[in-house]
Amino acid sequence: MNKVLAIIKKDIVTELRTKELFSSMLLFALLIIVVFNFAFGFSVEILNLAAPAMLWIAFIFAGILGLSRSFALEKEGNAIMGMLLTPTDRSLIYAGKMISNTIFVFIVGVITVLMFILFFNYDFVSTLIPMIPIVLLGSIGFVSVGTLFSAMAINTRLREVLLPILLFPIIIPVIVSAVKLSGEVLDGNTIFDASASLKLLIAFDIIFVTACAVTFEYIIDES
């Protein structure tokens, strides 16, 4: 457990120093929202309908950007090898990277929601608070698989291009359920009004955190 904390601490210290991940992710999310706005011609009806989808597309694209960068940093100077040389269980390395990535993506997600509330005049309290658990569950689901796949993608010729190709079809359940849940919240309902989606999202998180922790060693270790 101390080892997991050490990895998380290392990632957070690095990020606080460089602010690389945050700035690029946030800027990207913001840009997507702005571009959508133009594309929909500022029509309020369309925006209201498309709002949840827009939010998650912005959020996931930004997240993918952050995930690729996160493993690229491990590859600089091949520091990941230094980690692999230590007597640390590979699933602990996965846990550390996954938790720190989740923290980053979650914070970016919350800020994206804030920008959203600001731009589109949603009620602050009644929107933000119920959105937080959705963003958290969505982040976990998306980062669980994303951490595994970004470790893969970094070692291939296609690199950053490969990650979204691998990730998108797999995280369809996350996107669908999170969009559905966000839709309920933006319509003024609670997340329990879409309990099937909530269950699906939680199930996805549990299944894939486990599956990815188990398979991570095959990705990260040399063959």
Partner: peptide, 15 residues
Amino acid sequence: IAFIDLPLVYISARV
């Protein structure tokens, strides 16, 4: 991972 994902994709398609 893809194979494990399939039942969830099916459920989400229904949702």
